[in-house]
Structure formats: structure tokens, C-alpha cells
Design a protein around this nucleic acid. Structure first.
Lengths: 132, 132
DNA sequence: CGGTATCCAAAGGGATACTG
DNA sequence: CAGTATCCCTTTGGATACCG
């Protein structure tokens, strides 16, 4: 079983967006949705080649999950050799503004980077403080 | 080491928003950011109590990471007993529209739920197909 | 109060090989 | 081609106890 519908765990007690995050932003799902949304229908191997580092096992798992959640549509063509096509659903497409917003926020990534540098420069180990 | 700045791994080859997702939507960070954004400054125990199921260990880890990434500001008051306050930074606050968009998309969660029911109703085990 | 330290179980996910 | 099946390793995170 990939998603258990019955067990909603706790973080959303304090935060209403946690359930959405769980559906959309689990690992590997963003690249898959992004690709299908930007470049249209893909066969299994095409996805494999585009998302170069994903293994077939994991790709299958994520696609099943996205299909089950209604974000992706899988079409099986019973030919020889078999042909399967994946495309984004209307529901999946409704995430586009969200993705756009995330994409825009990316300009702030260098601030994050800078913050990390600053943080790592400062001393956070009490035992090693040099100043008094 | 919590975040390794040097190793950017692969999914973003196919998807420009993966780095943002990694920064903002790792587990437990959304509840924390949400709470700090909605309800203002919090002390450590206050966060613990609001996000009921988080353990102090994990809360510490997430807060350090958020601080390092510049999304949260930690202020230490050297009193007895010690007092520490966490608040969201300007950079963190700039995520608000994103959070709002996610919150709006939540209305689609019942479609996801329905899709799951449909999927689980259909038969996906070839060996057990009942139709011909 | 605001954390650390330690231990450990479960889950995620990679590598590899195989199949209808 | 489009996956499965296995194995196994690493990481995440929960439980618990303790400390300045």
C-alpha cells in the first residue's frame, strides 16, 4: 500500500497546508509533474531519460502514486512492444500557478545561500567560542 | 552537518523548483514556519506545545536548519532561566503568498481523496482481473 | 527552560537482475 | 518497452534520559 487514506498524521494540527504538501511535494514528484506539465505526454523511458538519476523502481512507485492521487493519467496501449503514456491530469494542471509561484521564489535562493555562509562563519559551538 | 551546501543532487536537472522545495518543504518545516508566520514569536516550549507531536530533538534540528537558511531568527536572552525566542525572518515572510496559494489549493484535496477511492476500487492486479 | 546525547526501529530509496 | 523482484544500505525520526 502506497498511501494510507485512513492515517492522517499529526503535523497538520498546527498547519493547514501540510496535507497538500504531502500530496504534491514528496520526493521525485515535483520533477515528474513539472516535466509532464511543461513538455506534455511521456512514455516511461522518456521520463527515465529526462529525470536522469531516477531508478525504474522509484519512477514506477511515484507514477503509481500520482496516478492514484489523480494528478497523472496513465494510458496503456496493448501493442507489441507495449506502449504506455503518462500525462498530467486537469487536477495536476491546476498546480501550475503554484509551481509558477515557487519558480518565482527561486530568486531568493541566493539569499538562503548567503544566510548559510553567514551562519557557518559565525561560531555556534559554545565550547569553541573565541570571543569572551 | 545539517545542510551540505556543496552537494546539489540530481532531481533539479529536470525541474527548476526542486531546490526551493528542498529548502521550504522538508518535513516539519511547514508547521513551524506556518505557526511563526501566523502567530508571531514563540519560545521553544510554546512551539513544542503548538506542534504537539514533535519531539524536542527534531524541533531543535528543524529550527537550526531554518535559522541557518535565514528563514527564522533565533534570539537568546541570557537570563535565569534562559529564554529563547524564535520569529520568522523577512525572507521567511516572503513565503506567505506561496503558503496562501497552497492553502487555496487545499480545496482540491477531496478530489484527491475521490481519485484514491476510484483507484482502489478498480483492479490493478493483472493476475486477479475479473473482467475478460 | 532549552536544549543534548544515545539508541533504535522503520522507511525511503539505490543497485542490480530479471520478466511478459 | 515497461516494468517487477530482491537485496541492502542509509537516512529520518521517534523514545528516552540527561544536562547547564
Amino acid at each position: 500500500m502506497i498511501n494510507d487514506t485512513t492515517t492522517d498524521v499529526a503535523p497538520e494540527l498546527a498547519c493547514p497546508i501540510t496535507p497538500v504538501v504531502d500530496v504534491v511535494f514528496s520526493r521525485w514528484t515535483t520533477p515528474i509533474l513539472w516535466v509532464l506539465n511543461e513538455y506534455g505526454r511521456h512514455r516511461f523511458v522518456e521520463l527515465e531519460r529526462r529525470i536522469t538519476t531516477i531508478t525504474p523502481k522509484v519512477l514506477t512507485e511515484r507514477l503509481r502514486r500520482l496516478e492514484r492521487d489523480g494528478l497523472v493519467v496513465r494510458t496503456y496501449h496493448p501493442e507489441v512492444p507495449p506502449r504506455v503514456e503518462y500525462e498530467i491530469s486537469d487536477l495536476g494542471r491546476s498546480l501550475a500557478p503554484l509551481f509558477a509561484a515557487l519558480s518565482e521564489w527561486s530568486v531568493n535562493l541566493d539569499k538562503v545561500e548567503q544566510a548559510r555562509l553567514d551562519y557557518d562563519t559565525r561560531d555556534h559551538h559554545p565550547s569553541r567560542r573565541t570571543s569572551l
